[in-house]
Design a protein around this nucleic acid. Structure first.
Lengths: 236, 236
DNA sequence: TTATGTGAATATCTTCACAGCG
DNA sequence: CGCTGTGAAGATATTCACATAA
């Protein structure tokens, strides 16, 4: 009853690309990051082997992934970094700007307000919100914290597409529901719960305590079953 | 010429459990988290179906995963939450305490110093370090920031096992190498680069900008190919 | 009856190995 | 040559479906 993956039986119009496997999709952002870095290092081309080495993947994995999104390589030469970067950015919708709100100005929220990489991803935080009256009105990272009661209106009026959710776990689902109702398109959730959102809204969770435990588990496992790193992938 | 995955030739002593598939291993920390939450909600038992529903997985996936680590379920009843929790904690090495250092007291580092979930995972941050003389000597989250020159000695003398790395990308590999040399067992890296560590050391990366881009990609993709959330998994 | 645990079937992902192109 | 792109093979992971146990 689930399996409705776009098997794309036969659509005549669109250039029917083979569907991107999910693990491959996750890796695309790594290629993007590495291309940026390589440009900084004044490289113009890169081989699947070098890219793989820098990211801890295999060369054939890189080639297959990149072949899904673009025939951007040149045989005997490698991938043109500039061109690959353009394609990946288009794929990621990063050719445009994204407006985001931050909800929850606690420890994590404050760190995120001052965090540079948002700029890098063409994402600008247009407003910050908090439920605590003691925090509302204060200024962090150059932005005045507004009350939760303004949230929906702001999202709607300013056509905000993304939200960074840094509220306590118990509050996360409620805020997510409100955001979705106000028309948000994507939520990056830092609370240690899964947030359920209606179709058409994307939600990803980054949970520090889960990450910590995965690390601890990796260490604990390695004490017996030696050799691989915590991702289970062999170091070169 | 790579494929030397630990095939575990033949060890007679240990109860040779079928090896945990990697995706399953990652999900274990979610089960752990959910068990804690269920205990708070005063539940005593939970079925694979309920657990699956709360985590966005399938029931048979949950059953298979849990059967790998323990026969903790009772047919006709479900899983005893308390017992499952104990088993998972043991599996994660969370029955013991972990000492950790924090390196890099910038935006993220400061947030992490004040972040409660570390306690939750039985991880205590015993010291914080920074390279900036203007930051060294200051106090954050009740800890005095020490100079990088003290790092190795601290790790060695206090037998610190984990490190949280919140330094700029350009510095991450150097610090990771130093930490590994000093005997660290696991590194949670927040810099947007892969850190290469020697065998026997675990390293996981959590990269906000990568997460942001994955989210943006999820939104961009959904604009055409509708229905799934950003993880590509159907909402119930 | 209910809900686990698990062979078997299926689906998905990765790797191999090499054709093909610059 | 060197390195990509890709069928085919192999390895992993998920789902189905049901025997089994409380």
């Amino acid at each position: 009853m689930v399996g409705a993956r776009a098997r794309s039986v036969d659509s005549p119009e669109v250039t029917t690309r083979a569907p991107l496997p999910r693990p491959a999709a996750k890796r695309l952002s790594l290629y993007l990051r590495e291309c940026e870095q390589l440009l900084i290092e004044n490289e113009t081309h890169v081989s699947s082997e070098v890219l793989a080495g820098r990211l801890g993947l295999t060369a054939s994995q890189v080639r297959r992934d990149l072949a899904y999104v673009a025939q951007a390589g040149q045989r005997g030469v490698g991938y043109d970094i500039r061109g690959l970067l353009d394609i990946l950015q288009r794929e990621f919708g990063l050719a445009r700007d994204w407006r985001a709100v931050l909800v929850g100005v606690g420890n994590i929220g404050r760190a995120l307000l001052g965090y540079a990489p948002f700029r890098n991803a063409n994402i600008s935080i247009v407003a910050a919100f908090d439920a605590d009256p003691g925090v509302v009105g204060g200024t962090w990272g150059g932005r005045v914290v507004r009350p939760m009661s303004d949230l929906s209106k702001t999202v709607r009026d300013q056509r905000v597409e993304l939200a960074v959710l840094a509220v306590p776990g118990a509050a996360a689902q409620g805020v997510a529901t409100e955001l979705a109702a106000a028309g948000i398109r994507g939520i990056l959730n830092f609370a240690p719960v899964r947030v359920v959102v209606p179709p058409g809204v994307a939600a990803n969770t980054v949970d520090f305590s889960t990450e910590l435990r995965r690390l601890a588990m990796g260490v604990a496992q390695m004490s017996q079953d030696n050799g691989a790193d915590a991702d289970g992938r062999k170091a070169s």
